[in-house]
Amino acid sequence: MTSRYAIYYCPERDTRLWQLASAWLGRDASTDHDTPAIEQLSMPQGDIDTAIATPSRYGFHATLVAPFELADHRSEQQLCDALAGFCSNYTPFTTPLEVQRLHHFLALAPVVPDPDLDMLAESCLRAFDIFRAPLSNYDRARRDTPDLSRRQRELLTRWGYPYVLDAFRFHMSLTGALPPDLLARMQSELRALFSDLLRTPVAIAGLTLVKQTDRDKPFKWIRQCSFTADNVISRQSRSAHA
């Protein structure tokens, strides 16, 4: 099976946010090690295990470039080098996050829409598309779900993923899809768990390249690159076209 790569925003591994979120998910994707259960949680472990089964495989993250197979004549080293070059043109910024209900799952998401996050996501999408192999029929069928809009199907055809550009929403998943009763109880639990950490805005200070060697395996960190530009790049108007 061909490896897949993705480009994520992940907090730096020495931050309390990374450590707490990884503990909640039961796995630290930076080390690929399981984490001890959080003792102060009041919910049954069985409910937690159900909730984290899917996001744990990906690790705590926000997707900026969705999982893709490498294009012909592109290498992992070239991808790493491109990520480092990309990050050298950005400077860190912050954004306030909170635990939100998004459809049928819970995630950390911006308190208010953040144009800097949207611009970063669009820049990543365009910069790294040259590394993406054409979407396989299997992945096309898997991502082309019945609930997609016409616009999202256009984005899927062009970019290999339907939730990009004007359909993008920055979020860091904490659960998979849950039934309404469990969703409500878990939202209360997670708001309490993250309340202290989210009193201050979260630093967006770099990007992380992750790799999945097989579809049955979890994603693991390959390289994390910090934003190192001295000055904030002037914001460019976002493109109105895909």
Results as ranks from 00 to 15, higher is better:
residue 130 I to A: 14
residue 109 A to K: 08
residue 146 P to R: 07
residue 151 R to L: 13
residue 135 L to F: 00
residue 147 D to C: 02
residue 95 T to V: 15
residue 144 D to Y: 01
residue 141 A to V: 00
residue 140 R to M: 04
residue 120 L to I: 08
residue 103 H to A: 15
residue 110 P to V: 06
residue 120 L to C: 06
residue 102 L to C: 05
residue 91 T to R: 15
residue 119 M to H: 12
residue 102 L to E: 02
residue 107 A to W: 03
residue 129 D to A: 02
residue 120 L to N: 03
residue 117 L to A: 06
residue 147 D to F: 10
residue 110 P to R: 10
residue 120 L to R: 02
residue 120 L to A: 03
residue 95 T to K: 03
residue 125 L to R: 07
residue 138 Y to K: 14
residue 108 L to Y: 05
residue 133 A to L: 04
residue 123 S to L: 09
residue 97 L to D: 11
residue 139 D to A: 12
residue 98 E to R: 14
residue 115 P to F: 03
residue 119 M to L: 14
residue 144 D to K: 07
residue 142 R to S: 13
residue 153 R to E: 07
residue 114 D to P: 01
residue 96 P to A: 15
residue 128 F to R: 04
residue 148 L to R: 10
residue 95 T to I: 06
residue 146 P to D: 07
residue 110 P to L: 03
residue 106 L to F: 03
residue 116 D to A: 15
residue 142 R to M: 09
residue 100 Q to S: 10
residue 140 R to K: 03
residue 150 R to I: 14
residue 130 I to C: 12
residue 125 L to Y: 01
residue 147 D to R: 08
residue 119 M to G: 02
residue 112 V to W: 07
residue 116 D to Q: 15
residue 143 R to C: 02
residue 137 N to W: 00
residue 144 D to W: 03
residue 140 R to F: 07
residue 103 H to W: 01
residue 115 P to V: 05
residue 151 R to S: 14
residue 136 S to G: 04
residue 118 D to W: 03
residue 144 D to C: 13
residue 154 E to K: 12
residue 96 P to Y: 10
residue 133 A to Y: 01
residue 126 R to S: 03
residue 125 L to W: 09
residue 153 R to C: 07
residue 137 N to R: 09
residue 112 V to S: 11
residue 115 P to S: 07
residue 147 D to T: 13
residue 111 V to C: 07
residue 131 F to L: 05
residue 122 E to Y: 09
residue 109 A to C: 06
residue 131 F to S: 04
residue 92 P to V: 09
residue 129 D to Y: 02
residue 150 R to C: 06
residue 135 L to P: 00
residue 117 L to N: 06
residue 146 P to F: 09
residue 113 P to K: 10
residue 117 L to F: 02
residue 139 D to S: 11
residue 138 Y to V: 11
residue 108 L to S: 01
residue 94 T to D: 11
residue 125 L to V: 05
residue 94 T to R: 14
residue 101 R to L: 09
residue 146 P to L: 12
residue 103 H to D: 11
residue 122 E to L: 04
residue 95 T to F: 10
residue 92 P to W: 09
residue 122 E to C: 10
residue 103 H to T: 09
residue 104 H to E: 13
residue 102 L to V: 13
residue 125 L to E: 10
residue 123 S to W: 10
residue 155 L to C: 11
residue 137 N to L: 08
residue 122 E to Q: 13
residue 154 E to F: 02
residue 132 R to I: 02
residue 124 C to N: 05
residue 134 P to H: 06
residue 130 I to G: 02
residue 150 R to V: 14
residue 91 T to G: 05
residue 122 E to R: 14
residue 124 C to P: 05
residue 148 L to N: 09
residue 149 S to Y: 06
residue 118 D to Q: 12
residue 117 L to P: 07
residue 121 A to W: 05
residue 134 P to G: 03
residue 151 R to H: 13
residue 155 L to N: 12
residue 111 V to N: 04
residue 155 L to E: 12
residue 113 P to D: 14
residue 142 R to E: 11
residue 138 Y to G: 00
residue 138 Y to Q: 15
residue 103 H to E: 10
